[in-house]
């Protein structure tokens, strides 16, 4: 909101910088997630301290990614922010409803699927993208 009245040059500069930060921290979070997942499995199996360190790094990068997302929202104009928040709301709803139903189905005896957190991440990612693209197209 506070950047709505920024001159365009400043606005595009802020957006570029915010995009860069968001990409950087998202990349860092992905890398630390990979480190946490595969490190404990392939490189230091059984070493609890290294595992805890990898988890702490992952949490730190995750928190920075969340902060970068909040700052990214602040440099967007009101319509861009609305589109982002609407998509986030849809994603939260679909993730909650779909996630619980999928977990319940997977836990049924004889179910051919084993629910995993990665399924939820995938569902939320696809939902967010589809919602954002659909809402943006409607405004054209």
């Amino acid at each position: 909101m506070r950047h709505d009245k920024l001159p365009s040059e400043t606005r595009s500069h802020h957006i570029l910088r915010s995009n860069g930060r968001l990409a950087l921290w998202t990349g860092a979070w992905l890398l630390t997630t990979a480190l946490m997942t595969f490190g404990a499995r392939l490189f230091w199996a059984g070493n609890g301290i290294l595992t805890l360190l990898a988890i702490a790094l992952n949490l730190l990068a995750g928190a920075s990614m969340i902060l970068a997302t909040i700052r990214h929202l602040q440099v967007q104009d009101e319509l861009e922010r609305k589109l982002f928040l609407d998509s986030a709301a849809i994603t939260l709803g679909v993730g909650l409803v779909g996630g619980i139903a999928w977990e319940f189905y997977g836990n049924q005896p004889g179910s051919p699927f084993a629910p995993q957190i990665s399924h939820l991440v995938l569902l939320m990612g696809v939902t967010f993208l589809v919602s954002l693209v659909t809402a943006s197209r409607r405004l054209r």
Partner: peptide, 15 residues
């Protein structure tokens, strides 16, 4: 100080 998409949407009465 807004995006062109915002101007387009307001002009068309979609926002």
């Amino acid at each position: 100080g807004v995006s062109r998409q915002t101007v387009v949407a307001i002009e068309k009465g979609k926002y």
